[in-house]
Structure formats: C-alpha cells, structure tokens
C-alpha cells in the first residue's frame, strides 16, 4: 500500500495521518486503506448499475415484485447490512485495541492546554514541566492525561495517534507511542480562538538512554 501511496500523490508529511510513526497511527492508517478500497469498489458498482439503467431496453410488464427482490431486499438490505456489519465489528475491534490499558512499561504524562499554549508534566519527574515540547521515550506506550484551563482544545499528534479533546473540568487519557526516536509535530485540533493556527507543540521521542537522562534531570 505504501507503493500506491507514493505513486498517487505522496503520503509523507510531518502531519500526515497516512505516514504513521507509531502503532496507533499505523493501525488507523491500515483501517483507512481498507476502507478506501472497499468504498472505491462500492462506488464503482453503483456507477455501473446507474449507467446500465440508461442502456436501450425493452420495457415489458414492469414486475414490481422482482424489482423489489433484487434492488431493495438484495442490494439495499442484504448487501449493505453485510458490508456494514463487518465494518462495524472491525472498527470496534480496532478501537478496543487502541484503548489505554495498565502495563508495566507504560509512561504517564499530562498535558494542560490553554489559549494558546501546551504545558506538559511528567509522573516520572515530579515538579518538572515543559511548555510546547512533550518528551516521551520511544518504543514505550505513553498515556497522556489531557485537560484544559479555559476553552475546549484537542491534543493531536497525527503521526502517532488520533486526537483527544482537552475539556475544562475533565481529564481524558490518550495512549500514544512512537516507534523511533525523533521529533513529531503536534497540533491543537479544535477551534479555540484567533491563536488557533499557531497553537502547536512538538513531541520529542528519546531513546532509552536519553529518556533516563531526561527523567533524572541530567539532560540540561
């Protein structure tokens, strides 16, 4: 699928959903390609059926019952329900897999949004906060506890995982993970006033050594 992607228009990009750099984003990216293929097939089928209606034909005694059997029961009910049932189950299965779960190697951090800044704190390094940059270890699941001090924002690192809102008075937890050390761009993804466009942040994924240094406060 990567080949199709580069042939078409290019998938890579610092904010690309289809250029995943972590397990959650990768699962969702696969989901997208599967759905795109299915949708294209269905669209093709509908267009062929539609075009065929305009062919020259004899109109005999239009048999309403047979038409209902084929078009409404066959295509409308049986076909759509089977496709949709499969998709619903697949989608929920994927969603279930992406849920944050307790585990020994899970790192907990928190993200606090306000107009127009992100402040991050770390369970492994109490008292330390960073503005605009979130440090995480690469290759380990990270649970981000997200909240807001003023309006609704949304925490989104497209190459790592889906987004989750920062809502005043609530704490939402999102599981992210980066395969490799590196920098990943993050965005606020719910309109939050005139500073919306520049309300961005960076996720820095460190290798084990650098992460240990960060946690112990030695990296400065």
């Amino acid at each position: 699928m990567g080949v199709t992607c580069s042939l078409l228009i290019g998938c890579s990009g610092a904010l690309s959903v289809v250029d995943p750099a972590g397990p959650a984003a990768r699962t969702i990216s696969t989901l997208w390609w599967v759905m795109l293929a299915g949708a294209a097939a269905i669209l093709g089928m509908v267009l062929v059926l539609l075009g065929a209606a305009f062919r020259a034909k004899e109109i005999g005694d239009a048999d309403e019952t047979a038409g209902i059997k084929v078009w409404i029961v066959g295509l409308g009910l049986v076909f759509s329900m089977s496709v949709l049932a499969a998709l619903t189950v697949y989608g929920l299965h994927v969603g279930h897999r992406l849920m944050p779960r307790a585990g020994a190697d899970v790192v907990a951090v928190s993200a606090e949004a306000r107009q127009w800044n992100w402040r991050f704190a770390y369970d492994n390094r109490p008292g330390h906060t960073t503005d605009g940059v979130l440090h995480i270890p690469a290759g380990r699941p990270v649970d981000v506890a997200i909240t807001s001090l003023d309006v609704v924002h949304s925490f989104w690192v497209p190459r790592l995982a889906g987004k989750l809102d920062a809502i005043p008075g609530h704490v939402n937890t999102l599981r992210i993970e980066a395969d490799m050390p590196g920098s990943y761009q993050g965005l606020s993804a719910e309109y939050n006033g005139p500073g919306y466009r520049m309300h961005v942040f960076t996720v820095k994924a460190h290798d084990a050594e650098a992460w240990d240094a960060f946690v112990s406060g030695a990296e400065q």
């Binding site: 049932a85 619903t88 929920l92 279930h96 849920m99 944050p100 779960r101 307790a102 649970d143 937890t173």
Partner: peptide, 16 residues
C-alpha cells in the same frame, strides 16, 4: 440488536 450489541463485547468504561 445492532446498535446495542456493544454492551456484550466492549469494556464498560476503560482502564481509566
């Protein structure tokens, strides 16, 4: 049947 089947298969509230 369709819209409520998740009560049988999904974790109720999540780990957190």
């Amino acid at each position: 049947l369709w819209t409520l089947y998740p009560v049988a298969v999904i974790t109720a509230c999540g780990a957190y």
